[in-house]
């Protein structure tokens, strides 16, 4: 039996987001949306996390950080890109310091669109991420 679907712990990292998606990610934890219903815990620590939730796009400086965080997460793990910037670079895609979406660095499993992504779609993304997590576990088992 697998417990991954019942206990997805997330790590949120703000790559170069404008705060809009970050705040919506946090809002998911709060009374109106309450993702803890699904066993979701915002860990704040890559070593505890199953799902890496990234908002904002990759830039010159945070590219290493994103890689480090992903490497420190124990397997199985999935990446959810939240918001237009994380998906493709969004409105800032052509700014000189932006390299593009998170998929420039990491294998992204779920893309959550929106500027800013709404809490409902973030929750939806996390639930889709759980599915990916299950698949990865089965593959490695």
């Amino acid at each position: 039996m697998s417990f991954f679907s019942k206990s997805p712990w997330i790590l949120h990292y703000d790559a170069s987001s404008c705060n809009g998606c970050d705040i919506e990610v946090l809002a998911c934890l709060t009374p109106l949306y309450d993702v803890e219903r699904f066993g979701v815990v915002n860990t704040g620590n890559p070593k505890h996390a199953d799902i890496l939730l990234i908002t904002g796009s990759v830039n010159e400086r945070n590219i290493d950080i994103i890689e480090n965080l992903y490497r420190q997460m124990p397997d199985p793990k999935v990446v959810v890109a939240v918001g237009a910037c994380a998906c493709s670079g969004g409105i800032f895609a052509r700014a000189y310091n932006i390299q593009g979406g998170i998929d420039k660095v990491l294998p992204v499993d779920v893309y959550v669109p929106g500027c800013a992504a709404r809490p409902e779609s973030i929750i939806d993304g996390v639930i889709k991420g759980i599915g990916a997590l299950e698949m990865k576990r089965k593959k490695s088992a």
């Binding site: 830039n59 010159e60 400086r61 000189y96 310091n97 390299q99």
Partner: peptide
């Protein structure tokens, strides 16, 4: 900032 484009607002850039 350690920008990707060094000195992004120089005349050349």
């Amino acid at each position: 900032y350690k920008t990707a484009t060094k000195v992004p607002f120089s005349h050349a850039a």
